[in-house]
Simulated assay, not measured.
Amino acid sequence: MQENWKDKHIVFFDGECGVCNFWVQWIMVRDKKDSFLFASLQSEFGQKFLSERGLETKEFNTMYLWKPDKYYLKKSQAILKITTLLGGIYKLAFLGKIIPLFISDFFYDMVSRNRMKLAAQKCFLPDKHQRSKIIEV
């Protein structure tokens, strides 16, 4: 496991979802500051994260962003924070904060419910550097 994982933002995602894996790869490519690590919700690390917070451990339809010892965000809030942390042009996504949370989460949930239909399952093969950013324990 990464020794410095507590200094990173950790993205928890559905490891069996093609759409989720696409977004993990999308973040990895744009993570120029090396701010993120990733863990599937199905992994031992992901299950521990969920159970410690009393969150659902069998349904994996929510993306979480966790900054250890500081906060965790979910759904649309997590996405907005990720884009802000990526910086550059992606910071413009902060404009999404003007949309009430119940509306942005409504659209998040709509995509989440249909994510398996939205993209064919494609195999994500990370390179060596990307593999070093995935927490497997």
Rank of each mutant, 00 (worst) to 15 (best):
M1A: 11
M1Y: 02
M1C: 07
Q2I: 14
E3S: 11
E3H: 07
N4Y: 12
N4V: 08
W5A: 11
W5I: 05
K8I: 06
H9Q: 08
H9I: 05
I10R: 00
I10A: 01
F12S: 01
D14T: 07
D14V: 06
G15P: 01
E16S: 15
C17N: 10
C17I: 11
G18W: 02
V19C: 03
C20V: 14
N21Y: 01
N21D: 09
V24C: 04
Q25F: 10
Q25C: 15
W26F: 15
W26R: 12
W26L: 01
I27W: 05
I27F: 04
M28P: 03
V29C: 05
R30D: 12
R30K: 13
K33F: 10
D34P: 03
D34T: 02
S35F: 07
S35P: 00
S35Y: 12
S35T: 14
F36N: 00
F36G: 00
S40A: 11
L41Q: 02
L41A: 03
Q42H: 09
Q42R: 06
Q42S: 05
S43G: 05
E44A: 10
F45A: 03
F45Q: 02
Q47R: 10
F49D: 00
R53A: 10
R53M: 09
R53L: 13
L55T: 05
E56T: 13
T57N: 11
K58Q: 15
E59A: 11
E59D: 15
E59R: 12
E59W: 02
F60N: 03
N61G: 13
M63N: 09
M63S: 14
Y64E: 04
L65N: 01
W66S: 03
P68I: 12
P68E: 10
D69K: 08
K70L: 14
K70N: 13
L73P: 01
K75L: 00
K75H: 00
L80D: 00
K81W: 02
T83H: 09
L86K: 03
L86V: 06
G87A: 08
I89C: 06
Y90C: 05
L92I: 12
A93H: 03
F94Q: 09
G96V: 03
I98V: 12
I98P: 02
I99M: 10
I99C: 09
P100I: 02
P100K: 02
P100G: 03
F102D: 14
I103T: 08
I103Y: 06
I103S: 08
S104G: 09
D105V: 06
F107W: 10
D109K: 04
D109H: 06
M110W: 12
V111D: 06
R113N: 15
N114G: 10
N114Q: 13
R115W: 07
M116K: 14
L118W: 10
L118T: 05
A120I: 10
A120K: 13
Q121W: 10
K122A: 07
K122Q: 13
F124H: 09
L125P: 00
P126I: 05
K128W: 09
K128E: 15
K128D: 15
H129I: 11
H129E: 13
H129C: 07
Q130W: 06
S132E: 15
I134D: 04
I134A: 04
I135M: 14
I135T: 09
I135P: 11
E136H: 08
E136W: 15
V137E: 14
